[in-house]
Design a protein around this nucleic acid. Sequence first.
DNA 1: TTGGTAAGTTGACGGTGTCAACCAGAGGCG
DNA 2: CGCCTCTGGTTGACACCGTCAACTTACCAA
Lengths: 233, 233
Amino acid sequence: MRGIMSTSRTNLREACLSEAIRTIEKDGIEGLSLRKVARRLGVSHQAPYKHFASREHLLAEVVADAFADFAVFLDKRTRSSRTEDELLAMGLAYIEFALKHPLKYRLMFSTTLPDRSEHPVMLEKAERSYLLLKDCLSGLEYAHRPDIDEAMLERDAMLILTLVHGLVTALTSDAMDTMPISEQARESAIAHTLARIGTILGGSVPTEPEMERISEAVRDRIPTGAVTLNLRD
Amino acid sequence: MRGIMSTSRTNLREACLSEAIRTIEKDGIEGLSLRKVARRLGVSHQAPYKHFASREHLLAEVVADAFADFAVFLDKRTRSSRTEDELLAMGLAYIEFALKHPLKYRLMFSTTLPDRSEHPVMLEKAERSYLLLKDCLSGLEYAHRPDIDEAMLERDAMLILTLVHGLVTALTSDAMDTMPISEQARESAIAHTLARIGTILGGSVPTEPEMERISEAVRDRIPTGAVTLNLRD
DNA sequence: TTGGTAAGTTGACGGTGTCAACCAGAGGCG
DNA sequence: CGCCTCTGGTTGACACCGTCAACTTACCAA
């Protein structure tokens, strides 16, 4: 028999998803439990298992949806912008999304997500956003400079992503509650980050000797190969 | 009566800490439980509560230790380096630590840590590393340029930290298992990041009109004030 | 000696994920 | 029509978990 709830027919699956979202909003990602969503849906504790193999699978789907929303947002906002500077538009869109949907954003970059390799759909949705940025970069005249090859572009894309991610992570961290910053400081932090991205793309590629100097230092100091997974020493 | 274990006297506290570390190594941060620690120490499930108010408190202490180790490492490596380029030395030290102790590093930047504001000791240890970088930056001639004021330095410090953090997060992410990259690509990713940091510090500060252009766009698009904590819409 | 406190103990409660077994209904099919 | 199988729900059990409460011991200070 079905539960008493309004969840008609066999759409319990959808109901679980949206109830999961509501639960995360209220209790955080750690507070999500299959039993809780079942209870809140007025359904037996095992019912969700008919639609999701495990808690992780449910979570993976919620996260995948968040990523999908993110990609759509990025795409739409960047496209619709009449700005010359398409990269600036994308950066702004990124930041706008993260500040408008901090929970969703946090969810996407939580470190306790289900293993990516076991949830290919989630992974695929996540990669979409990265591709959008890379495409955007490819469209700029930056990409047509003779000193920029594919690998360089890829590395710079990563850097840019990292910069914006770091910025919004800081801006939406709960440190902001205990140590709030002024609206003005916030704005200049954002503008500064975006400007510095411009600096990176505008500046010429590091010179050969400079790269060699750094690479040497890297080879000197950075361990190569397998990593050790222990917390001691 | 005491447990049978070798944990003599009242050093159960220390024993808990190191057993917690061992547990995290084996079962991940999610797998840490006070009961497990107690069991592995041959002690009753409530014994750890005499030394740690809750699971979170135990975890906070482990994390605080990790941060302390990190700060010490940064300091030592940077100091001992005979390089002219002190910033490069610090960047390398950062990366070296993260690659040598990926678990410890992940632990420090896990998103499921105890609330920072409720664990001041942990917070304080965490801030130490940031201060080290800022100090390092202050020592450079960069800091003495007329166009660099305190706020600018602070913002650039944040950017640099973000860049290095993003780099090592990618390098130690488990995506590396499923999509491994060549030793050479790894090395150039590292060198590239460090070089781009140089680009940032070397380049001149963004011009006034450029900043104004960006700031305007920011004001246009970025929501101000309170954020909404919901996952819908 | 006495009394109080710190550091252990056992026990209980409510919560979790998940396996197993059962059951009702719907649809295909001989 | 009758049967049979599959889907989506059910209850029940198990082994965990964090944490509160109450009890016991050992020691140390007055």
